[in-house]
Amino acid sequence: MKAFLAALMFMTRIPLPQVNISKNQWHKSARYFSLVGLVIGGVLYLASLTLQQFFPATITSFFVVLLWIWITGGLHIDGWMDLTDGFGSNKSREQILEIMKDSRVGAMGVIAAICLIGGKWIAVYELLQHENAIILLLSPIIARFLLINAIRFFPYRNQGGIGEGLRANLSWLAIFLNFLFILALSYYLIGMNGFILLFFTAIFSGLLVVTIFKKLGMLTGDCYGALVEWSESVSLFIALAIWGLM
């Protein structure tokens, strides 16, 4: 339970009672990231249903995206901006890592954040228009499931660092149980389209991870955050494409 609370406290800004979390419990928290996604997705889904009773889809989608940013504290957007600043510089591996470590945000990071937030706003609006708000529940779960796969199968920047501890405690069984959970939930909520959504989101997210790995030879905390934002956004647009084809 404390490992789950550690994951919830780290990945969200949901008010929680203060709990003493040991280093070992924190290292075990990654196996619960998908459940954190369920909490975030549940809040977004319920908020969208409630807000639609009072506002048009444009305003509702705007508030939902704001809530999305608030509930994560902008944690992943920060990683997304740092990554795009680094890769947008078109410099060497060492220089990219230095740029990503810099607390200042460059032009590429600002542009990337605007595109990301604007893209989410448009996608959420279209989903609400087509009465597919349920994707708001699935998107954060899928993104965090793909995150734990990246943590498990790609090396972290610092040996013995915080990411390395998470990786060491992600067993094959934990990955498999997370996979069964998201597969069952996706099928329950949207049928076979859930499998299609998960498959194509994994493909596009995998391309991002491989691109980063080829350039840097490892992943960093910023890469993890960027992956979450990318996966969430991609899943929204893939969902729209699925229903568009149907």
Rank of each mutant, 00 (worst) to 15 (best):
I111L: 15
I111E: 00
A112G: 01
A112D: 00
A112W: 01
A112Q: 02
I114T: 11
I114W: 06
C115S: 14
C115D: 08
C115H: 09
L116T: 08
L116R: 09
L116V: 10
G118L: 14
G118H: 15
G119P: 03
G119F: 05
K120V: 04
K120S: 04
W121V: 04
W121N: 02
W121H: 09
I122A: 12
I122L: 15
A123P: 07
A123E: 12
V124L: 04
V124S: 00
V124W: 00
Y125M: 11
E126V: 11
E126P: 00
E126R: 13
L127I: 07
L127F: 02
L127C: 07
L128A: 07
L128D: 04
Q129P: 03
Q129H: 11
Q129V: 10
H130E: 06
H130V: 02
H130T: 10
E131Q: 14
E131W: 00
E131K: 14
N132H: 12
A133H: 11
A133E: 11
A133M: 11
I134T: 06
I134D: 00
I135Q: 00
L136Y: 01
L136C: 10
L137Y: 12
L138G: 04
L138T: 02
S139L: 09
S139Q: 12
S139F: 07
S139N: 08
P140W: 09
P140V: 06
P140R: 07
P140A: 04
I141D: 03
I141Q: 01
I141V: 12
I142R: 04
A143P: 11
R144W: 09
R144E: 14
F145I: 10
F145Q: 12
F145S: 07
L146A: 03
L147A: 12
L147E: 13
I148S: 01
I148K: 01
N149P: 00
A150M: 08
I151V: 13
I151Q: 08
I151K: 09
R152H: 14
R152N: 10
R152A: 13
F153P: 07
F153K: 11
F154D: 05
F154S: 06
F154Y: 14
P155W: 07
P155T: 05
P155V: 07
R157Q: 05
R157T: 08
N158S: 14
N158Q: 15
N158M: 13
N158I: 14
N158F: 10
Q159Y: 10
Q159H: 06
Q159C: 05
G160Y: 14
I162Q: 05
I162G: 01
I162M: 11
